[in-house]
Design a binder for these strands. Structure first.
Lengths: 213, 213
DNA sequence: CTCAGAATAATCAAATTTGACTACCAGCAC
DNA sequence: GTGCTGGTAGTCAAATTTGATTATTCTGAG
C-alpha cells in the first residue's frame, strides 16, 4: 500500500470539506510531496476513486471564487472514517520498509487516544523485532554468511534499518509517555492544516538535494 | 524511480541470456520480492518495455524444455549496459528514502571497480548530509520546532533515518576499504545467480511478518 | 495407466502513478 | 487596454504496478 489514501482521507477529514487543491496544499505543508507520492495526479485520482467507493462524497462542482476552473468539494463519509482509522492503525504497526507509510501515520496519530497510539507503537516495535529475527534466521545460510558475498550487504542493510527504526520508535514512545502532544480527547487538538488564506511557509519550487534521481 | 529496471537489467546481464522466469528466480534468491516490487507482472513488463526501448534484445520464443509455455530469452545490448551503469551509479549515490533502490544497487556494486564504488558511496554520504541540513534548515520554523506539534515527528523521523543511513554507509565504506568482496577486475567475480538446476535455498511461499499490511 | 498436484512460464484487466499539459482569472507593467 | 506573469484548479495519456489467472509439462501415488 502506498500512503496516498491515508494522506488524502486524513486531509479531507481535518478540513471537514475540501477540494483537491486544498488537499494538495496541506500535504505540501507537511512536506509530503518530498517523502511520498502525493503529487497532483495521484491526489485527484485518489479523491475520485474513494468517492466512487463511498469513502468520500463529492459535492457538485462550484465555480471557483479565486480564479481557476470550478472545483469539487469532498467530505468524508462514515465508511471513510472507518477506513481512515483502519489505515492509520495498520500504518502505525506495519513494518514494511516503506517509510512514507509511517510518516503519513505520524501525521494523524493524535486522532487516536494516547493509550491506543502507545499500544500500536509498542506493537510496531514487536513487529520489527520479529521481522528481524525471521530475516536473520532465514537468510543467513548455515555455512556462514560469507557464502552470500556482497549480497549479504543487502540483508545487513535491512537489519540495520530495522534496528534503527525500532530504536526511533522507542524514543517516540518515551516522548509520548512523557506527555508530548495533544491526543484525542485531550482538548484543543493541534490541526496541521492551512487556514483559508494563510500562506504556506514551507512551500518551495526549488528542488532539494535528494528530491529524485 | 523504482528499483525494477536496475534489478532486471542486472539479472539479465549476469546470465548473459535469460528468460523472465530465470530473472524472477534470481531476484527471489536475493530476497528482492521481499524488499522491492519485483513481482512477476512487473518483471515481465520491464523486460518487454526495455526490449522495445533497445536496452534488451528479445530472441524469438522457443518452446520450453521444462514445461510451461514457450519462453522468450533476452540479452542485454550495449545501450542496455550503459543504462545499467548509469542506473547503478545513480542508485548508489542518490538518497531518496527508498531503501529498495539502494538494496538493488548493493547487489551490483561489484560490477564497478573498487575505487569507483568507494567514490560513489562517499558521494552518497555527502548527499545524505546535504539533504539533512537542507531539511533541518528548511522545515524548522524560526520560532522553534514546537509550532509544528506532532507533525515535527515526521521530520524527526526523516532526520533519524538519514543519520542512520549515513552511518551504515560509512561502515560499508570501511569494509570495502579493508578489502571485502571481489570487485571488477579483481579476478573470480562472485556471481549471485542460480545455476541451471540449482535449487533456491531461500525460496519460500510462507509469508513473513511484515510482508505487507 | 491416469489423475492430482506441483513446477514452469507467462499473460491480462484493473488500479495506480507519473509528468506534462490545459484553462481560468488577477494584477501589474507598459 | 494589452500582454505577461503567476497563482488556482484540475485533466489526460502513457507508463507502471498489482493481483489474479492461464496454459503446459513433469512427477509420483495408486
Amino acid at each position: 500500500m502506498s500512503a496516498i489514501r491515508l494522506l488524502v482521507l486524513g486531509a479531507v477529514r481535518q478540513h471537514g470539506r475540501a477540494h483537491g487543491y486544498q488537499v494538495r496544499n496541506d500535504l505540501e505543508y507537511w512536506g509530503a510531496h518530498e517523502w511520498s507520492n502525493a503529487k497532483p495526479g495521484s491526489i485527484y485520482h485518489a479523491l475520485k476513486q474513494m468517492a466512487k467507493q463511498g469513502l468520500l462524497v463529492a459535492h457538485e462542482t462550484e465555480p471557483s471564487t479565486a480564479g481557476g476552473p470550478p472545483r469539487t468539494e469532498y467530505e468524508i463519509t462514515e465508511e471513510g472514517t472507518r477506513e481512515f482509522r483502519t489505515l492509520l492503525r495498520a500504518s502505525l504497526t506495519a513494518y514494511d520498509q516503506k517509510p512514507d507509510v509511517l510518516s503519513a501515520a505520524l501525521g494523524f496519530m493524535v486522532d487516536l487516544g494516547r493509550e491506543e497510539a502507545l499500544g500500536l507503537l509498542e506493537e510496531r516495535v514487536r513487529v520489527i523485532e520479529e521481522w528481524r529475527s525471521a530475516v536473520t534466521e532465514h537468510y543467513v545460510p548455515e555455512d556462514g554468511p560469507e557464502r552470500l558475498g556482497h549480497i549479504g550487504e543487502i540483508m545487513n542493510f535491512w537489519v540495520h534499518s530495522a534496528d534503527s527504526g525500532a530504536e526511533w520508535t522507542r524514543g517516540l514512545i518515551r516522548r509520548i509517555k512523557d506527555g508530548a502532544y495533544a491526543f484525542a480527547g485531550e482538548g484543543e487538538p493541534f490541526v496541521g492544516v492551512l487556514a483559508e488564506g494563510e500562506e504556506n511557509p514551507y512551500r518551495t519550487d526549488e528542488t532539494h538535494p535528494g528530491d529524485a534521481q
